[in-house]
């Protein structure tokens, strides 16, 4: 049986159907969590902020207006704002801690290889954390969520061309930063 699309579920959720909202939650909780996890760098804040995103969404779903954008764009916007507030509140912290859990171990990798990869990943993730928020958002949406440039454009409120160009500039700046570090 095919799953109902977002629009059908949204119509019910907007009318106050809790089960419909539950379905939307089930569909998006993993994505929103991932997005926040990579923006904050730790599990506890990611869990806390993910919960807040869904509470906020639930309390405002009845005023949600469909403007042709995917529902996920609305959720990512909420997540983006909450993460921005979180960064502002934690701005006195000199460095964002990156948890060990962030380094995913691939089973079957020899220990040396995974150590090397872990170091490379750590380096790269630290660099990503130094990028401006919109570039971080772009990389997460592209590599964690596997969205196309057009979808990322919808979420970030930009054209597909602008996203392509931003992506290219982001890669160039990462390349230069990696070269500087070597």
């Amino acid at each position: 049986m095919s799953e109902p699309n977002d629009e059908a579920i949204l119509t019910q959720a907007v009318q106050g159907d809790a089960d419909a909202f539950g379905m939307l939650y089930q569909r998006y909780v993993g994505r929103i969590y991932n997005y926040i996890y990579y923006r904050t760098g730790n599990q506890h804040d990611a869990e806390d902020l993910t919960a807040r995103v869904f509470y906020r969404a639930m309390h405002h779903i009845e005023s949600y207006q469909h403007r042709g954008l995917p529902f996920s764009a609305w959720l990512y916007r909420i997540a983006h704002n909450l993460v921005a507030n979180w960064h502002r509140d934690n701005s006195r912290r000199p460095e964002i801690p990156l948890e060990d859990g962030l380094w995913v171990h691939h089973p079957g990798d020899p220990p040396e290889a995974s150590l090397l990869q872990a170091e490379e990943r750590e380096r790269l993730l630290r660099l990503i954390h130094t990028l401006p928020p919109e570039r971080q958002q772009l990389l997460i949406l592209k590599f964690v969520e596997h969205f196309s440039n057009a979808e990322i454009g919808e979420i970030m409120g930009r054209t597909e061309g602008a996203i392509k160009s931003l992506y290219h500039r982001t890669l160039l700046s990462l390349r230069d930063d990696l070269e500087k570090m070597d």
Binding site: A18, A51, E120, L139, V144, L171
Partner: peptide, 29 residues
């Protein structure tokens, strides 16, 4: 660089217990 980014930015699923817990809380919302 893209393959490095792909390896670094792996999807990390939220803990199952957390998902369930949050779902329950949302239901008693």
């Amino acid at each position: 660089l893209e393959s490095l980014l792909q390896a670094a930015l792996m999807p990390v699923p939220p803990r199952g217990s957390y998902q369930k817990d949050l779902r329950n809380r949302l239901e008693k919302s």
